[in-house]
């Protein structure tokens, strides 16, 4: 049986893993290669490394970080943050990533999705969507809006419609972050996740709002998510992906165990 994936996300700044609440009060949380290997050992089904440094010098540091992280990592490895062109993506793949996550660049130039997909396969292209419900709309969920530049700027697109276009253009997966839920630890936005997941045939990874094991069970059941991102699972007393999965299995979610 196909299992629900638990994806460990590492935010990386200047070559180090950082933790913080909405990028405020960044705390050094170690070496990315070491942390990624630990997450894989502790049962994560996949690793996402998000580069939150947006400088030119940061790119070279990132490539070096990706190279070191990929070397001893034998689970799927996705890298995102600041990938603006097919050439950027190619460098990240050459450094050892299996997938790239693109966000603002895909909205600015949707053809980029197909361009990367043609060279590296659709499975290698994850389109990340940061979305917020539109309280003004008749259907706040169905009309949820997409934002770019770290959530500061509206993209003028609806999340559901953009996800459909991304799929049509050759995206392999959608990484959907609910900006309303992000940082709240009050649960994923299951309605929004379900709206996007049911609109596309490709897998949808839910992100934003995880605060308890029950939230994960909920986003898999009600939210129809195929995978969920766990950036700060340690904040609510679950020490590892494995223990999270053990609790999910006990509540009837199909996960990869033993792992």
């Amino acid at each position: 049986m196909l299992t629900k994936r638990i994806i460990a996300c590492l935010d990386v700044h200047a070559g180090r893993v950082v933790k913080g609440v909405q990028f405020v009060d960044l705390v050094d949380a170690g070496d990315p290669a070491t942390q990624a290997a630990r997450h894989a050992r502790e049962g994560a089904d996949e690793i996402v490394l998000l580069d939150i440094t947006a400088t030119h010098e940061g790119r070279q540091t990132l490539l070096d970080t990706v190279r070191r992280t990929a070397r001893e990592l034998f689970v799927p490895f996705c890298v995102g943050g600041g990938i603006r062109s097919a050439r950027d993506a190619e460098q990240v793949f050459e450094a050892g990533a299996d997938k790239v996550s693109i966000n603002s660049a895909a909205l600015a130039d949707p053809a980029l999705i197909g361009e990367i997909g043609r060279s590296f396969g659709a499975q290698a292209v994850v389109v990340a969507i940061d979305a917020r419900r539109d309280p003004q709309a008749a259907d706040p969920v169905g009309d949820a809006q997409v934002f770019v530049h770290g959530g500061r700027k509206p993209a003028g697109r609806r999340a559901v419609e953009w996800a459909r276009e991304a799929e049509r253009r050759g995206a392999g997966e959608i990484l959907l972050t609910s900006m309303d839920a992000d940082g709240t630890r009050a649960g994923f936005d299951c309605e929004l996740t379900a709206a996007v997941s049911q609109a596309v045939s490709i897998p949808v990874i839910a992100s934003g709002g995880a605060g308890s094991v029950a939230h994960f069970a909920d986003v898999f059941a009600r939210g129809k998510a195929d995978a969920a991102l766990a950036a700060s699972i340690f904040h609510f007393g679950v020490s590892t992906s494995r223990s999270l999965k053990e609790e999910l299995a006990a509540s009837g979610v199909s996960v990869r165990l033993p792992c």
């Binding site: 049986m1 196909l2 299992t3 629900k4 994936r5 089904d45 659709a122 499975q123 392999g172 997966e173 045939s201 490709i202 897998p203 195929d226 995978a227 990869r256």
Partner: peptide
């Protein structure tokens, strides 16, 4: 079911 088949299966 979704196509493609993506993820860990037994």
């Amino acid at each position: 079911e979704k196509i493609p088949h993506v993820g860990w299966n037994s």
